[in-house]
């Protein structure tokens, strides 16, 4: 089975938010919901005119990092959070008791309460929609006009993402916590 991950050429991000719209449309996320499943973080320009620090201005697309050592999965008292066959971190809403421990344990603030099911929800890498239909792309990746996102099988040495990670420098968010995220930010 594939082990999916995502590389983000984040400096190409123009903060158009098409990824957020596509995600909402594909996965039935509530319209208008703020920071549900995916979002784009903004680092504003620091300094004072005319000595503006232009390089400090950046956009950082983010979502669940689908950690290989996911704290949210470890702390779940009912195993509602689990790894599916693609090693994607998923939530079984039938088992979720809404204790909110995962929301406190996730270092990336990637979890939220879905008001319709009153259970915790998060990015699924489109596992139950596109991947389930046999596609190998996510909605956010597919729609991105500047091709920020590359989604693919980390275990396949021939995949585009593996090639990118071999040839481009990259970093992970809060790597010091040992969560082994499967989102890689290309520099």
């Amino acid at each position: 089975m594939a082990r999916y991950g995502m590389a983000l050429d984040y400096k190409n991000c123009i903060n158009c938010k098409a990824c957020e719209v596509a995600c909402k449309e594909e996965n039935g996320v509530l319209m208008g919901a703020d920071k549900h499943r995916i979002w784009v973080g903004v680092n504003e320009i620091s300094g004072e005119y005319p000595l503006l620090d232009i390089v400090s201005h950046s956009f950082q697309p983010s979502q669940c990092q689908h950690c290989d050592e996911a704290p949210c999965q470890m702390v779940c008292p009912t195993n509602a959070t689990y790894y599916d066959e693609f090693h994607v971190v998923r939530v079984d809403s039938d088992k979720c008791i809404l204790c909110s421990y995962c929301m406190n344990a996730c270092p990336y603030d990637a979890r939220y309460v879905d008001d319709r099911t009153m259970t915790v929800d998060k990015c699924t890498f489109c596992s139950d929609t596109r991947l389930a239909r046999g596609e190998t792309t996510t909605a956010c990746q597919n729609t991105c006009p500047t091709k920020v996102r590359t989604f693919g099988d980390l275990d396949d040495p021939e995949s585009e993402i593996s090639e990118l990670l071999r040839t481009r420098e990259h970093f992970s968010l809060k790597a010091n916590l040992g969560t082994k995220p499967k989102l890689f930010y290309l520099t």
Partner: peptide
Amino acid sequence: GHPVTMMIYNVLSPGLTSAI
């Protein structure tokens, strides 16, 4: 949020790495 679900799945699907 779901105390009844908790009582069921605490037994059927225990998360042994969870302090809770």
